[in-house]
């Protein structure tokens, strides 16, 4: 690397310079990540410690005093869980679960999609028919199977979401990669004696990944909501360690009775976080797109 080349940091900064919304999104993500990471230090209460909770503190509106004398800024749920603390901890779980699931799941999907497009033949058949199989298999049954076999737990939810995430990406990437494979540069690379793996990673991947990047933020928010839905259906994370989704689902029951804070605060945080992820992702995508970059 020569000295004139911009550093990676400079490259990233170039992508964001002059785009205040994207910068705000970046700041937002950083904020949420920090809150999630330092939740145990920041949160007024440990919502997972059952001895700290008291149902006598249940359903208090925002700004109420708990039995311990602390103020509950955002109110409490039926179990006496401080919503502010629960949201901080829930953010942690939701982010962790969805990021791990989407990254592992999408990575797997992209790899299998490229493999299918390159190898064709029986490899493609097996991969694509597995996609069909997965598409037909309901997530709720899958989650129930994991629950029945291995019990409740955050890790089981991640497995279920990974299995939920890979197939659509594989299909998407394969469809684009098939088109790419017909293009001259692949033939040229082959003639130049470049190995299959290198062609896949160096040429096919960058040229086929754009549609996956488009759906990635959706995939993350999708994973967060999928986790929430599993919780809503009673097969999500353990109820004593609620994620944002589970908090929303719990608050759902109180929506009609005017106890809005239980559902609304986690909901707002969820929407805000996904919004931040999306504006940043949009910027990166636009920047990465050579046609658009040329216009700037």
């Amino acid at each position: 690397m020569s000295k004139q080349d911009p550093t990676r940091l400079e490259k990233i900064w170039k992508a964001f310079r002059g785009h205040p919304i994207a910068i705000a999104g970046l700041i937002g993500i950083t904020f949420f990540l920090l809150v999630a990471f330092f939740a145990p230090l920041l949160a007024p209460q440990n919502p997972y410690d059952q001895t700290q909770l008291d149902i006598l503190d249940g359903l208090l509106p925002p700004m109420s005093q708990l039995g311990t004398g602390q103020t509950s800024w955002l109110g409490t749920d039926a179990l006496g869980r401080d919503i502010l603390s629960a949201v901080m901890y829930g953010l942690r779980i939701s982010l962790f679960v969805s990021f791990v699931a989407v990254i592992v799941g999408s990575g797997l999907g992209v790899f299998l999609g490229l493999l299918a497009a390159m190898k064709r033949g029986w490899v493609e058949t097996v991969i694509m028919r597995s996609v069909d199989l997965k598409m037909s298999f309901p997530g709720i049954l899958l989650a129930l199977m994991l629950l029945a076999m291995f019990g409740t737990g955050v890790d089981k939810v991640i497995y279920a979401l990974i299995i939920g995430a890979w197939a659509s990406k594989a299909r998407l990437v394969r469809s684009v990669a098939l088109s790419e494979m017909k293009k001259e540069y692949i033939d040229a690379a082959r003639l130049a004696g470049i190995g299959n793996l290198r062609i896949m990673l160096r040429f096919l991947l960058p040229n086929s990944i754009s549609p996956v990047l488009v759906v990635l933020p959706m995939a993350i928010s999708g994973a967060i909501t999928a986790e929430a839905t599993l919780s809503f259906l009673g097969v999500g994370v353990p109820i004593t360690e609620p994620s944002l989704g589970l908090l929303i689902a719990n608050g759902n029951d109180y929506l009609l009775s005017g106890k809005w804070w239980i559902s609304i605060f986690p909901g707002l945080v969820l929407v805000a976080m996904v919004l931040c992820i999306n504006v940043v992702a949009d910027r990166i995508r636009d920047h990465a797109n050579p046609y658009l970059r040329g216009k700037e």
Binding site: G222, T225, A228, F232, I248, A249, N252, V271, V274, N278
Partner: peptide
Amino acid sequence: TVGYSIPNFW
């Protein structure tokens, strides 16, 4: 963005 950020059941 807002549209698909809100969980379906909610």
